[in-house]
Design a protein around this nucleic acid. Structure first.
Length: 510
DNA sequence: CGCGCCCTGTGGGGCCAAAAT
DNA sequence: ATTTTGGCCCCACAGGGCGCG
C-alpha cells in the first residue's frame, strides 16, 4: 500500500460523502496489522501519533514556497479556496509538476520519515521535510507532518478506535482508548487476533483520567453527592510500585515526574509499601501562598533538572484508581468501586497525613452544599467538584457524575483594535480580535463564541475595527510586565448600540 | 422524531525550548 | 539579543452525527 493509493481513501473522508466507518475499514483492510504500513495508516487517519513532532503550519508554509513555484500570499489564497494547507500544497503540486514522475512511497516509509522528523529539528529537519514534499503525494505528506493541523477529515482517534473495536468484537471502546492512550499500539492490538489491549489500569501504565462536566446544574443533594474543592493547578496521576514512585502522568498521559522532583520526596515520606495509583492536582505555592495557575507551568517542559525551584508545589489527591500489594482491602483495580468507597480507601491509605487528601464533604441539603462551595471560594479556590457517591471511575469521560461548580463568568464591553484571519475552515473569515478597554489598555484577544463562527468575511475586517463587543471571561490576569489579559474569554455578541467600552477600573472591580 | 451526548474543530492565555531573525 | 514558532498545561464554544427514549 503506497501513499498515493491510501490518499484516495483519505480523499473520500475529506469529501465526507460516504460512511466514515466504511471508509476506515476499507482503507485498513489490506494492510497487515503488525506492519509499519499499518502504523503509517493509523497516523494518517487519526493525526495523533505525529502531532507533536514540531512541524506547524507557519514553517510548512514557508518551506512550501521554497519547494514549489508559489508565493506566501498565493498559498494563503489557495488555502482559502481549498480549505486547508495540505490541499493547497496538493493543488500547487499538480499545477507545477505535471511532467516529472514522482517517487511513490509506502506508508511504512512515511512512518519512518515522520519518526526521523520527531528526532531532528532545525535545518536537518527542514532538509528532510523538503525531500518529503517531493514524494507522491505531497498533500498527504503535508497532512501527516501537520498532525491535527492537517486536513480536517472529521475523523479522529476516537472514531478510528471505535470502528476498529466494534469490527473486532470489543466493546467499551472509549475505555480501551483511555487505558491504551498510544493509539497506534491500541489499533495494532485491536486488529491482531493474538493480542488484546489493556482493559484495566495498571501501575506504570498511563491512562486518560475521569473528567468533570462543566455548565451542569448542581444536583439536589439528597445525601448521594460529595463535594470537593476545585484546585487551579495541573492534573497528575501518580503511579507507585512497592511504596516507591514509579511514574507520574499528566491529564493527556505525558510523563511529568521529572518536572515535579518533590513527588519522589512525597512518596518516600508517606509510602512504605504497596502499589497505588493516585489521582490529584499539583498546585503552585510560594512562601505558603497559593500562586496563579501559570506558576505551575514553569515546571513543565524544562530541559534542565528542576532542583532550585522558584515555586513550591503541593499535592492534593481526590481519588484512588488502583490499590494493591498489601492486603485484601486493596484488591488492585478500584475503578469499579463507588466513589465514596474509593475516597474512603484514599483517606485510610494516608492515615495521619490527611493534608494530602482533598477535603471531602457530604452535604444533605442544597444550603449546606452551597455553604461548602462558598467557603471554597472564600478560601480563594477556583470552585468545587460535586461527585455522586456511587459513581465508578469513568476513564476519559466528562461524566455528569462529576460536576464542576464554578462562578458564573463576568461580562465586559471592549473595543476591537485589530483582527486576524481564521485557520482552515475559518480561512477567509475573521478568526480572532484584539481587545482594548476604553482607557486604551490591551486585554488580550477573543475568538471563541457564537459570532466567531457564523463568520465575518475577511474582506469586511476593516468594518469591525473600533466597534464594541461584549465578552465574557472568568478572570483578569496581570502579568509581570504590567500587561493584562482576560482568562477564558468568549464572545457574547456585538454591541452596535454602544460606542464606548468599559474602563480597566470597571474590570478590576468586577 | 427529537433531544442529548460524543466527537471534532474552532478560538483564548501563559510557560518552556529551540530556531529564526 | 529579541522575536517567532510549536508544544504543553489550563480552558469555552459550535455544529454534525448518531443513539436512545
Amino acid at each position: 500500500m503506497d501513499l498515493t493509493e491510501f490518499g484516495a481513501h483519505l480523499e473520500e473522508l475529506q469529501a465526507g460523502e460516504k460512511s466514515k466507518d466504511d471508509v476506515i475499514l476499507r482503507a485498513l483492510r489490506d494492510i497487515n496489522p503488525s506492519s509499519k504500513h499499518f502504523s503509517g495508516a493509523i497516523a494518517l487517519l487519526t493525526r495523533k501519533p505525529f502531532d507533536d513532532i514540531g512541524v506547524g503550519k507557519k514553517s510548512l508554509r514557508k518551506l512550501a514556497t521554497t519547494c514549489f513555484d508559489v508565493t506566501h500570499d498565493e498559498l494563503r489564497d489557495l488555502e482559502r479556496e481549498y480549505g486547508d494547507l495540505p490541499s493547497a500544497i496538493g493543488h500547487v503540486d499538480l499545477k507545477t509538476n505535471t511532467l516529472t514522475l514522482k517517487r511513490k512511497i509506502t506508508l511504512g516509509e512515511l512512518y519512518d520519515d515522520l519518526e526521523y522528523l520527531r528526532r531532528t529539528s532545525g535545518p536537518e529537519q527542514k532538509r528532510r521535510m523538503k525531500e518529503m514534499l517531493g514524494y507522491d503525494s505531497p498533500k498527504w505528506v503535508a497532512h501527516a507532518m501537520l498532525g491535527k493541523k492537517g486536513v480536517s477529515l472529521g475523523v479522529g482517534e476516537k472514531s478510528v478506535v471505535k470502528t476498529l473495536a466494534i469490527e473486532n468484537g470489543y466493546d467499551e471502546h472509549r475505555k480501551l482508548l483511555s487505558l491504551n492512550p498510544d493509539v497506534t499500539t491500541l489499533c495494532h492490538k485491536l486488529t491482531s487476533p493474538d493480542t488484546d489491549p489493556r482493559s484495566e489500569p495498571g501501575v506504570g501504565h498511563p491512562f486518560l483520567p475521569m473528567l468533570a462536566k462543566s455548565k451542569e446544574v448542581p444536583p439536589d443533594p439528597d445525601g448521594d453527592w460529595m463535594i470537593q474543592p476545585k484546585y487551579d493547578g495541573a492534573r497528575i496521576l501518580v503511579h507507585i510500585k512497592n511504596g516507591e514512585l514509579r511514574r507520574a502522568f499528566s491529564r493527556n498521559a505525558n510523563r511529568v515526574d521529572e518536572s515535579l522532583p518533590e513527588l519522589r520526596e512525597f512518596v518516600d515520606d508517606v509510602f512504605a509499601t504497596g502499589d497505588w495509583i493516585l489521582d490529584g492536582e499539583a498546585i503552585p505555592y510560594k512562601d505558603g501562598e497559593r500562586q496563579p495557575f501559570q506558576a505551575i507551568m514553569t515546571r513543565f517542559g524544562r530541559q534542565e533538572a528542576v532542583d532550585e525551584q522558584e515555586i513550591d508545589v503541593e499535592f492534593k489527591f481526590f481519588d484512588l484508581v488502583y490499590g494493591g500489594g498489601v492486603c485484601a482491602t486493596y484488591p488492585g483495580d478500584l475503578s469499579n468501586e463507588t466513589a465514596s468507597r474509593r475516597i474512603h480507601l484514599l483517606r485510610v491509605l494516608f492515615g495521619p497525613e490527611q493534608e494530602y487528601v482533598a477535603p471531602t464533604y457530604r452535604p444533605d441539603t442544597h444550603e449546606k452544599l452551597n455553604e461548602y462551595y462558598q467557603s471554597f471560594l472564600d478560601d480563594g479556590l477556583e470552585g468545587a467538584v460535586v461527585k455522586h457517591v456511587d459513581a465508578p471511575y469513568e476513564f476519559d469521560r466528562r461524566s455528569p457524575n462529576w460536576r464542576k461548580m464554578i462562578p458564573t463568568k463576568e461580562n465586559v464591553e471592549l473595543r476591537i483594535t485589530a483582527v486576524h484571519e481564521g485557520e482552515n475552515s475559518n480561512a477567509g473569515k475573521v478568526g480572532g480580535m484584539k481587545l482594548e478597554t476604553e482607557d486604551g489598555v490591551p486585554v488580550g484577544h477573543v475568538g471563541g463564541g457564537m459570532e466567531g463562527h457564523s463568520g465575518i468575511p475577511w474582506e469586511e475586517r476593516d468594518d469591525i475595527i473600533d466597534k464594541i463587543v461584549e465578552v465574557s471571561w472568568r478572570e483578569l490576569q496581570e502579568n509581570d510586565d504590567g500587561t493584562y489579559a482576560l482568562r477564558f474569554p468568549s464572545l457574547e455578541g456585538f454591541r452596535a448600540d454602544k460606542d464606548e467600552a468599559d474602563s480597566l477600573d470597571k474590570i478590576l472591580s468586577a
